[in-house]
Amino acid sequence: MQTKVRHLLDIWLAHGKYSLAREMMFRGNFIIWMAVEVCWFVLQLVFIKVLYLHVDTIAGWTQWEMVLLVGMSQWMQQLFQTFCMVNFLQFPELIREGKLDFLLLRPAPALFLVSTRQWDIGSIPNSFLGMGVCGWAFAHLGAGITVGGLAMAAGFVVLGVALHWAVLLILIVPAFWVTKAHGFIGVYYQLFNIARQPREAFKGLFLRLFTWTIPVLLVANLPVRALARGGMPPLGLTAWLVAGTVALCAAAVWFFHFGLRRYTSASS
C-alpha cells in the first residue's frame, strides 16, 4: 500500500515538474494567464466595494466578511485549478480524439491520471493571492487568528477542493456520450459562483438545493462565518458538508467508471 502511494506521489510530482517546464516555454503566456485570474478576482472585489458604498450589510454580512468569503472561495478555486481543473477541461478532447488510450495504458489508475496529469502552475501564486486577501480581510475584521482557526480553515479548503473535483467530474463525464461537452463547464462555473455568495441571501428551493443536495453554499460560508465571528462552525451543517462531499466524490468515481465502460477509442 505504502509503495503504491509512493508510486502515485512520484508520478504526481513528475507531472508537476513537466508542467513547470512546459509553462516556462511560453513565459509571456504564463504571465498573461496569471493576470487573467487576478483581473477576475479584482472584479469581484470591486463589485463588493461598490455595493458597500450604498449599503452597510448584505444579508447580515459586513463588507470585510464578504471580502473574506470571496477570498476563501478564491483560495479553494485556485488550488483546485492548480492540480485538477485544466485536466478536466481537456477531458472531452481526450475522448473525442481517442487520446484517452494513452492514459489507460499507463501503469496507474485511470482516474488519477485523468485528474492530475497536468498542473496549472500559474494558479499557485493566485491561490496565495486568495490567502493574502483572506488575511487582509481578517485584519480588518479584528478577529484573532488561532492555530485551531487556521487548522479549521485548512480543513475546509481541502473539503472545498474535493467538492470542486466531484462536481466538475460529474459534469464532465457525460463527454463519454456527448461529442462536445464544453457546455457542462459553464454550469460548473455558475454553480461555484453561488459558493461566493452569503448563504443567508438565498431562500426556499434554491437554499435547500445548494445546501442539502450540492452543498456549495456551505463550503466557504461555514468557515468564513466561524472565523469572522469566532467560535466553531455549526456541527450539524459541517457534518452534512463532509458527508455530502464524500457522497459526491463516491458518485463521481462510480460515474467515471460507468462512463469509461462505454469508451471505445477513436482510432481506426
Binding site: 456527448v178 461529442t179 461537452a181 464544453h182 457546455g183
Partner: peptide
C-alpha cells in the same frame, strides 16, 4: 453539437 448548445443556453 446540440447538447453543448442547450447547456450553454441553460448555464
Amino acid at each position: 453539437y446540440r447538447w453543448g448548445f442547450f447547456l450553454r443556453v441553460f448555464s
